[in-house]
Computed example of a mutant assay.
Amino acid sequence: MEVVSFMNMKGGVGKTTLAVNVAFTLAAVHEKRVLMVDVDPQFNATQYLVQDDRYLSHISDNSKGTIRDVFVPRSLGAVNTTTGLAKPQNKAKMDLSACILTIYDGAKPGFARGGKGRLDLLPSTLDLVEIQTSPRKTEDKLKHYLKEKAAHYDYVILDCPPTISIFTEAAILASDKYVVPMRPDPLSVLGLPLLERYIHDYTADAGQKLEQIGIIFSLVRTPTPTAMKNIMNDLRKARKSAVFESMSTLSTHVAESVEYHRPMIYFNKASSKVKEQYLKITAEFLKRAEK
């Protein structure tokens, strides 16, 4: 199992789009067993992959869980009116199958590509914001949960919030590696060393190392303005092999694919060029991650 976080301290860089589409393509094309974990209280990855009625049915079912239950595992069960005691329920011990939503399963009928790949989603919820002020060591729970419950997956992809928070810390502690999606603009470039310094300092204090798989340019305009080209060229020179050769361009089809809850390679309206971009990004991700 390889746990990889997609993170950037700046919002609006296409982070969730890349995380979702890489996770889906790993499962559907490369036949990997993938768990997508939405660690963001805004739950954008969840909204991308799951239709509203299915999601509402899941979170309304008391026997089901979300990422919130990883951080707040204990809740009181019914009180025995004779003894005055309440039996605690430990949702951290709940089987992962009760918490996930299966997005793609190539081994089952109804999925066009077939094969052995699988993508499951551990969804997020707006209620996750309540965890922000939780006691210390809450950030350790995701790492332990995944180690115990998700070892049968090839990859666990974490979609992180665009801020430094307990959820970012939890993702860092749980991850083996991380990817930085970046829009090639001055503010995004400025935030890169800040993110890297934070990760370096935080992991050093925690006694662990977190390897950067690379930087992926996203939301690149076409035709690409000279200023944007210069930023990309300068970063490639400075970071050399750290920057992915593959990139994603700005496309209206991305917003539409979110509306239809369809990853790009399965979205009929998407152009072959756009689909090819995500195929190339995922192939390069796989090559880098498996080094």
Rank of each mutant, 00 (worst) to 15 (best):
residue 78 A to M: 06
residue 82 T to D: 00
residue 100 I to S: 03
residue 103 I to C: 08
residue 77 G to L: 01
residue 79 V to C: 02
residue 97 S to H: 12
residue 99 C to G: 07
residue 105 D to E: 03
residue 65 G to P: 09
residue 107 A to K: 08
residue 92 A to W: 06
residue 58 H to F: 03
residue 64 K to E: 06
residue 86 A to G: 02
residue 62 N to T: 13
residue 103 I to L: 00
residue 107 A to Y: 07
residue 75 S to H: 11
residue 84 G to S: 00
residue 85 L to C: 03
residue 84 G to A: 01
residue 89 Q to L: 15
residue 63 S to T: 15
residue 105 D to P: 01
residue 59 I to Y: 10
residue 88 P to Y: 02
residue 98 A to D: 10
residue 80 N to M: 04
residue 74 R to W: 12
residue 70 V to C: 06
residue 79 V to A: 04
residue 75 S to F: 14
residue 100 I to E: 05
residue 88 P to L: 08
residue 59 I to M: 05
residue 98 A to G: 11
residue 85 L to D: 01
residue 95 D to M: 08
residue 67 I to T: 08
residue 87 K to A: 09
residue 70 V to K: 03
residue 78 A to C: 00
residue 84 G to D: 01
residue 93 K to A: 14
residue 87 K to M: 04
residue 84 G to I: 03
residue 70 V to G: 14
residue 74 R to A: 15
residue 59 I to R: 01
residue 74 R to G: 13
residue 72 V to D: 14
residue 88 P to T: 08
residue 99 C to E: 14
residue 60 S to W: 07
residue 90 N to P: 05
residue 67 I to A: 09
residue 76 L to G: 01
residue 71 F to I: 02
residue 66 T to C: 11
residue 107 A to S: 15
residue 58 H to M: 05
residue 97 S to R: 09
residue 67 I to Y: 07
residue 104 Y to V: 05
residue 65 G to C: 12
residue 75 S to I: 15
residue 61 D to W: 04
residue 103 I to K: 03
residue 104 Y to L: 04
residue 81 T to P: 02
residue 93 K to G: 09
residue 65 G to I: 15
residue 67 I to H: 08
residue 84 G to M: 10
residue 85 L to V: 05
residue 89 Q to P: 08
residue 88 P to F: 09
residue 62 N to F: 15
residue 63 S to Q: 15
